[in-house]
Simulated assay, not measured.
Amino acid sequence: MSSITVTVIDREGNRTEGVDWKSHESLMEALTRHKYPILATCGGNASCSTCHSYLDPASFAKSGEIGDEEEDLLDMLDDTRHETSRLSCQVEWAEDLDGAEVTIAPEW
């Protein structure tokens, strides 16, 4: 099983480097495994937006296409959506994301 590491910035601004992300996990699953406060109410089905996060611009460009369901949910997050917003449940593991910086979005 392969893994990469990412840097996570929590809602209080605390930065943790070297957070491991295993190849069989979505980003949301890696964050919840490390006990970050991601509700994941829908269980990773892109239907709740409780796993909203921001990626650094370079990693956002490598994170894959945003599907219609994810786009619809992100559109509802007017106050907290940024150019690099993603639902972490929809970000699949990829070696290219090694070293990514992930900021957990504010709760809405």
Rank of each mutant, 00 (worst) to 15 (best):
L27Y: 03
L39A: 13
K35Q: 14
T50L: 07
T50P: 01
T32W: 08
G13P: 00
E17F: 07
G43N: 10
C48T: 03
L27D: 02
H24M: 09
L27P: 00
K22S: 12
W21G: 02
G13D: 11
D20Q: 13
L55A: 10
M28H: 01
A46D: 06
H52F: 11
V19Q: 11
V19K: 06
T41R: 12
V19T: 11
T32C: 08
L31P: 00
K22F: 12
A46V: 10
E25S: 07
C42V: 11
N14C: 06
C51W: 04
L31T: 01
N45I: 11
H52P: 02
L55C: 11
H24V: 08
C48Y: 05
L27E: 02
P37M: 03
Y36R: 03
M28D: 00
E29R: 03
R15P: 02
E17L: 02
L27V: 11
A46R: 06
E12I: 05
W21P: 05
R33E: 12
H24K: 12
Y54G: 07
A30E: 08
K35A: 13
I38Q: 00
E12H: 13
D56E: 04
T16R: 15
S23I: 00
R15F: 04
T16C: 08
L31M: 09
G18I: 11
A30R: 04
G18T: 10
A46M: 12
Y54F: 14
C51V: 11
C48V: 02
Y54N: 04
T50D: 06
L55V: 07
T41Q: 15
E25Q: 15
G44Y: 05
N45F: 14
M28A: 03
C42L: 10
Y36A: 04
A30T: 08
P37V: 07
